[in-house]
Amino acid sequence: MNGYNFAYLDEQTKRMIRRALLKAVAIPGYQVPFGGREMPMPYGWGTGGMQLTASILGVDDVLKVIDQGADDTTNAVSIRAFFERVAGVETTTVTPAASVIQTRHRIPETPLEPGQILVFQVPIPEPLRFIEPSEQETRLMHALEEYGVMHVKLYEDIARHGHIATTYAYPVKVDGRYVMDPSPIPKFDNPKLDMSPALLLFGAGREKRLYAIPPYTHVESLDFEDHPFEIQRWDERCALCASDRSFLDEVITDDAGGRMFVCSDTDYCLTRRGELS
């Protein structure tokens, strides 16, 4: 695109982000502060993920962008169009065909492969933020590995509801050290973080933090012996592809309470329907 560098960011900014990424990978789950830049899209709309994608993307990459698991949601369309415009890279909706996948709120259902990179958009990177609003305090809590408050919060849910009431952005512990926010993915996706063959990168633009989970890293969702971690389950199957193991979106079909459930991952659903027919 005229007047802008390849992938929009200038080379000095990319180098700054690249150096931070290497540190992030070396300290799995630790939030590295970085000099986040304004992007030509609003903060909160994926500017962190976009800066990471812009810093790693090359001419040989094939990019996939999803929001809520779908390739065709407006923000996914908008971000994909941005990179087509500023980097001219090939894009795809097919999960296995992508070398870099930028995502908001989901991990694809199709298992990721070695060599793939999944870039998460993160709104609030600090898992302790809703317990302790001060950055100075939470930084100290991470330094001292003082995560008791997080367990107390989860246990209060159990006392009150009989269940842990966190259903997305469910905190994990990375390689036995850092408690990390996996971004607002449903807890349904948490098990996919553990020993993933793909590199997982997380970018929070407004909060100016990035972090990473290298491939094949132990990631456990916080839980209790008497209340083990469990994921969402549906009584229904996908109304389109009949999958009984994917995350389902509820769709209202009429004004009389009619509803149906369909896969949130559009590529997974389309692929299955193609195979079935």
């Binding site: 690249r18 990424l21 290497l22 990978v25 810093s55 790693i56 060599g115 590199l199 491939p215 094949y216």
Partner: peptide, 10 residues
């Protein structure tokens, strides 16, 4: 950089 990132990740 991608080679470096890959080296540091694995």
């Amino acid at each position: 950089f991608r080679q470096l990132l890959s080296a540091m990740s694995e």
